[in-house]
Design a protein around this nucleic acid. Structure first.
Length: 589
RNA sequence: GCCCUUGUAGCUCAGUGGAUAGAGCACCGGACUUCUAAUCCGUUGGUCGUAGGUUCGACUCCUACCAAGGGCGCCA
């Protein structure tokens, strides 16, 4: 996925800006030899940016890298951009940007529509499958990552101009519903609804399970009920819908607390694909892809083997004639491609499903349902671990309920707020605690590489030091505070072209201008932690600036306005960055 | 047995084929009559799991091995 300049948004990142000129210079110097050479301009700790292409090109041209670099510098025109461009070390070109150039780029970012972020070159219709809780089961910590990562991707993809379709693949069908409905009948609808509406889904499920395990007559009832459900018995469906509705109401409550965009209309439960299931078998049959194996209808996609090194089947129709999740997932692909016409299908699903999803993709591709440029991507993620390095559990060994987890987050944050800022009203404290607590949980989840497991640690995620959301939020709040003190409207400084002089101003300016690169880099890999790392760097640069560069007591009016402009832009980037991660930015803390 | 993922400082984690591998915590030492010290600045700390290979150049790409976790036929 690529960014584009065609949205009236001038590219703000000086590194991207200079890249085009450098590439042209390399082509001029190297001619045919330069084709395929990486001329990318990169961030550097020795200068504002560095160019490495000379080292790669030298051999093909029969010159030393330094000679190539000198030739490139002869050809390239950087007068308006760089104050310095030097060959260094074995043949790197170190670039130093003019402060006036940085100031112009800051203006472009400040007055642009999206803080310098480019729109997608070709906006796509993107479908995101995420969250996926189960009806009549509590949402627990296992649903956290899918929900939070999926929500962040929705926001980021939307921000750069894609059309995003959210789908919550709720587990609302299957054999457990026989016992759940019978349990509902036993309790009486009113009482059952009460129990479900207070969110005590686990005990409901456990009681049903217990009866099922202990009573043969209950088992028989449950099995009969499953048959009735699948054959569309009206009364059974009515009871089933009751369960689904109560559960969805509860999920929505959690989503609201968590601050994710999922709505009831985004629910596309497994049951939604029931009518498509027979079509999956007939279409695969018509394509000649299905074979009988041990009584079941299966497809053998290429490249998958089992324990005995035999071809591994994807079971489409079980020996008993029933369908399973593979069938349902294939129906999903058909629906998403043919009805919704999504071009990119994102599955924000745990890593253990990798092979299953690969098989689904393989079969769907072989069947001709998934054709380039349509693509299916597994956005996989690892587990949430406790301090013991095992799956996070409560002290008593139960799964951690999401509801309880979020409540505790806000409580812990409230304690910190009360301690640090007791002068605020109770209402203000509660609101800040909510934003900080929820933000901390989400940020902890988003800020490490999603592919890895991560260790859940209250103290660390709520700390104001290090790569945490409170630290980022604090940077934002401090800026808001400056404007409150100055009694200056934020918007009034946005057209002021700043003068960059202090080294800390420069550092901060460079960081602010990298928002676009950071966001696109994040989208490129569907890895929100990259944006987190950027925002943390931005906050660090700001904190350093804040220490060294007085704003309200600047030496003169120009310096003061310059710094106010830089502060406002920093705050806006921070706020926008956090927002696409699904995290709010309080104005005071 | 086959396949996938992970392995970086005492701990938690970043790291785009480029120069001297970076943060935070912890440890030690500094800075509040100051725009929020919920902060900042400095010191200490590394066989990048191991061994080969590709390359001008490897934490990064390839191969093998070691370790941890996960997956591998009718649950979803």
């Amino acid at each position: 996925m690529q960014g584009d300049l065609g949205n009236n948004e001038r590219v703000a990142d000086p590194i991207i800006y200079v890249e085009q000129r450098i590439a042209a210079a390399f082509a001029k110097v190297g001619g045919a030899a330069a084709v395929g050479i990486d001329t990318a301009v990169r961030q550097s700790d020795r200068a504002d940016a560095q160019v490495n292409g000379s080292l790669a090109l030298a051999k093909a041209m029969g010159l030393t890298p330094r000679e190539v670099a000198l030739k490139v510098l002869e050809v390239v025109d950087l007068k308006d951009i760089c104050s310095d461009a030097q060959v260094a070390g074995p043949g790197f070109i170190n670039l130093t940007f003019k402060n006036e150039f940085l100031a112009r780029e800051l203006m472009a970012s400040s007055t642009g529509k999206k803080l310098g972020v480019r729109n997608a070159t070709k906006p796509r219709k993107v479908l995101i499958d995420y969250s996926a809780p189960n009806v009549a089961k509590e949402m627990h910590v296992g649903h956290l990552r899918s929900t939070v990562i999926g929500d962040a991707l929705v926001r980021m993809l939307t921000y750069v101009g894609n059309e995003v379709v959210r789908e919550n693949h709720v587990g609302d069908w299957g054999t457990p519903f026989g016992m759940l409905i019978e349990h509902l009948v036993d309790l009486g609808e009113t009482h059952a609804a009460e129990e479900l509406s207070v969110g005590d889904l686990d005990s409901f499920y456990r009681s049903a399970r217990k009866k099922f395990d202990e009573s043969e007559t209950f088992q028989t009832r449950a099995r009969t009920r499953v048959v009735a459900l699948q054959s569309g018995d009206a009364e059974t469906l009515r009871l089933w819908k009751l369960l689904v509705a109560e559960s969805n109401r509860y999920f929505q409550k959690i989503y609201h607390t968590l601050g994710v965009l999922l709505e009831p209309t985004d629910v596309m439960g497994e049951s939604a694909y029931n009518e498509l299931l027979p079509q999956v078998t007939t279409r695969l049959g018509a394509l000649g892809m299905m074979t009988k194996s041990d009584g079941a209808d299966v497809v053998f996609p290429e490249g998958f083997t089992n324990r005995e090194n035999q071809p591994l089947p994807l079971i489409i129709r079980k020996t008993d004639g029933g369908y399973n999740y593979a069938t349902s997932d294939l129906a999903c692909v058909i629906d998403r491609v043919e009805r919704i016409d999504a071009e990119l299908l994102l599955y924000v699903v745990g890593a253990p499903q990798a092979q299953h999803l690969q098989m689904i993709a393989a079969v769907a591709t072989q069947a001709g349902w998934l054709k380039a440029p349509r693509e299916m991507v597994h956005v996989s993620f690892g587990n949430v671990l406790g301090a013991d390095k095992k799956m996070l559990k409560t002290r008593s060994g139960d799964t951690v309920k999401l509801d309880a987890l979020l409540t505790e987050a806000v409580e812990r944050a409230a304690k910190a707020v009360a301690e640090k800022n007791p002068d605020l009203t109770a209402e203000a404290q509660a609101e800040i605690a909510r934003i900080v607590g929820i933000g901390a949980v989400k940020y902890a989840d988003l800020s490490t590489d999603r592919i890895k497991d991560y260790t859940f640690d209250w103290d660390r995620m709520l700390s104001f030091d290090g790569n945490t959301s409170p630290y980022l939020q604090y940077a934002h709040a401090r800026i808001c505070s400056i404007f409150r003190r100055a009694n200056v409207e934020r918007a009034s400084v946005r057209n002021f072209e700043p003068t960059i002089s202090h080294v800390a101003e420069r550092e901060l300016a460079m960081k602010v201008l990298q928002f676009d690169s950071a966001l696109w880099d994040t989208l490129d890999k569907y890895s929100p932690h990259r944006l987190c790392t950027y925002l943390y760097d931005l906050a660090t640069s700001f904190s350093s600036f804040y220490e060294q560069c007085p704003v309200l007591k600047a030496e003169n009016e120009n310096e003061k306005n310059s710094r106010l402009m830089l502060c406002d832009l920093t705050a806006r980037v921070m706020q926008a960055g956090l927002e696409v991660l699904g995290i709010e930015s309080p104005e005071q803390m």
